[in-house]
């Protein structure tokens, strides 16, 4: 994790991980039937799991941004460092927004094939 370019992409790497995890969980859940049983006030445990995963992913990306902001150390000349700090902040904000936007559907859309 020492190379600054890896820090630039870090937030979106977390987004990609969340994406894979949520999609894989959804497909697995439908395949083994987690969407049918009812638990408590949730219509299906699968939706509950997905919502939890999405929230964890979102928190992880926001945490990444916070961590990146605290880590703004001088890796090179001042100009290069501020450039990299700017870019990684923009990218992280983009990743946060992307997470909120991409996974919003888990709250109400049809989970599994009819």
């Amino acid at each position: 994790m020492r190379h600054p370019l890896l820090l630039v992409i870090l937030a979106f790497v977390v987004w990609s991980g969340t994406f894979l995890l949520v999609y894989a969980t959804q497909a697995t859940g439908c395949s083994v039937g987690w969407h049918n049983d009812e638990i408590a006030f949730w219509r299906s445990p699968l939706r509950f799991i997905l919502i939890v995963l999405v929230i964890i992913g979102l928190v992880a990306i926001v945490g990444t941004l916070a961590w990146l902001r605290r880590r703004n150390t001088l890796t090179a000349a001042l100009e290069t460092s501020t450039f990299l700090d700017d870019v990684k902040t923009y990218v992280a904000i983009g990743a946060i927004f992307s997470s909120a936007f991409c996974f919003a559907g888990v709250f109400w859309l049809t989970l599994c094939p009819l």
């Binding site: 936007f101 919003a104 559907g105 859309l109 049809t110 009819l114």
Partner: peptide, 16 residues
Amino acid sequence: LTGLTFYAFAEGEFLL
């Protein structure tokens, strides 16, 4: 984009 995407989600549910 936000309006369009969420409108499309609702429409998709309706068609489904």
